[in-house]
C-alpha cells in the first residue's frame, strides 16, 4: 500500500470518526485544533484504524498518555528539553517543527496531524511486513 492509498483510508477513518468533511482532512490538519477531536475520539480512531488496516495498536502507542505528567518534562506550562526529547522518542511519527518554537503544554496535542497518523500507519505496515 503506498502513501496515497494510506492517506485515503486514514481520511475515511477520520471522516467517519469525527464527522468532518472530506476536504477538511488535509495532511497538515491537526486532529484536535482543526478537526475537533476530543480525547474519546482518539480511542475511536484507534479502533477504526485497526479495522481499516488489520493491525493491533497497543494503548498509548499512537496517542501516548501521561508523558506530560512527569514534572521534569514541564516547567511553567512549557515543555522542557527533556520533555521534548521524551515526546520525540515516543512519537517518531509526529512532526514537532511547529511545536518546538512554542512549547506550550496545552498545545502538545496539536502535533497529532493527519500526516502523523499516516506516518504511524506507514511505519506500522512496514513493521508488519518486515
Amino acid at each position: 500500500m503506498n502513501r496515497d492509498e494510506i492517506f485515503e483510508k486514514v481520511k475515511e477513518v477520520l471522516v467517519d470518526a469525527l464527522g468532518v468533511d472530506d476536504d477538511e482532512v488535509t495532511p497538515d490538519a491537526s486532529l484536535t485544533a482543526d478537526l475537533g477531536a476530543e480525547s474519546i475520539d482518539f480511542l475511536d480512531i484507534v479502533f477504526k484504524l485497526e479495522q481499516a488496516f488489520g493491525f493491533k495498536i497497543p494503548q498509548g502507542e499512537l496517542f501516548p498518555e501521561n508523558v506530560m505528567d512527569n514534572p521534569e518534562f514541564v516547567q511553567d506550562g512549557r515543555v522542557t528539553d527533556a520533555g521534548l526529547a521524551a515526546l520525540k522518542e515516543r512519537l517518531p511519527h509526529a512532526d514537532f517543527t511547529r511545536f518546538e518554537s512554542d512549547r506550550e503544554v496545552t498545545k502538545v496535542a496539536e502535533v497529532f496531524t493527519v500526516d502523523a497518523v499516516v506516518n504511524f500507519v506507514e511505519r506500522k505496515l512496514a513493521g508488519v511486513q518486515a
Binding site: 480511542l43 479502533f47 494503548q59
Partner: peptide, 10 residues
C-alpha cells in the same frame, strides 16, 4: 462487540 481492550470498547 467489535473491539475491546483496557481502554474501552466499540
Amino acid at each position: 462487540l467489535d473491539r475491546i481492550d483496557d481502554a474501552g470498547a466499540a
